[in-house]
Design a protein around this nucleic acid. Structure first.
Lengths: 125, 125
DNA sequence: ATTAGTGTACTATGACATTAATACACTTAC
DNA sequence: GTAAGTGTATTAATGTCATAGTACACTAAT
């Protein structure tokens, strides 16, 4: 698993992934993450890169690190609830902005999205 | 106007903007763009950066340059129609993927989007 | 105490984005 | 032909991302 976009730093792409894992409850409050070295092996990147990712998320209050023990998802559930809402709004906001910049109306955006989801839902089911 | 994201090269962010201007018909087929030097002044970046943006879009067949004359939107309207469709699908696809990674269902995505658009439409009107 | 597993810090290197300055090639208008 | 306005090319310097290697500090288990 090492498909990274060239147009954005790897450590930020990893931070995005971890955020989404947390928001989707695949990583729960208080849960321990892979060690810097293990995660580096998993994603086939340098340990320093993982450390930057963890530092960034720690700075945002999402992760907490205990020296010698490991890195954990914060226990403060309110932060995670806030994160979930923030990421959702952020995604919707930038999506809508770009679609409107391209000249699509609100109706076109909704119907385009519905078409896409219908195709996917049928394909998966 | 020089608000650029630090997590993506400026020349690609400018390419995105130009693509959207073309898709929204603010730039029409065959229309002349600002010169490399003028555009550099407008966006407060180095002329070399603009040149890279133009080269990239030329490589994609969106722009055409005539030495000594300037850089123009391609006359091939089919390319622009294709571009419009591609960019729309691309935006929808990545938006849906991220929302699903965060654990949102199709219904939640649609309703979240509708809420957002309702707020905006009322605010603007 | 020792060991293994943590996070953390430091230096060096290579690749790339960006800026800067300069020069060249072509087209159009005068 | 000259001048002004185009795109294009080259070189150098700076900053960031990522890798590589090494070392240190702390914790838990033995």
């Amino acid at each position: 698993m090492d498909e990274f976009n060239t147009s954005k730093p790897i450590y930020l792409q990893l931070a995005d992934r971890i955020n989404r894992l947390i928001v989707s409850k695949e990583l729960k409050a208080g849960q321990k993450l892979q060690s810097v070295r293990d995660m580096a092996l998993s994603y086939n990147v340098n340990p320093n890169t993982i450390q930057r990712t963890y530092s960034e998320l720690e700075r945002e209050g999402i992760l907490e690190t205990r020296r010698g023990q490991g890195t954990f998802v914060t226990e403060q559930e309110d932060r995670l609830i806030q994160l979930r809402g923030n990421l959702k709004e952020e995604q919707i906001q930038t999506f809508v902005q770009i679609m409107q910049e391209m000249g699509y109306s609100s109706d076109e955006i909704i119907s385009g999205l519905q078409d896409h989801l219908n195709k996917k839902d049928k394909g998966d089911a």
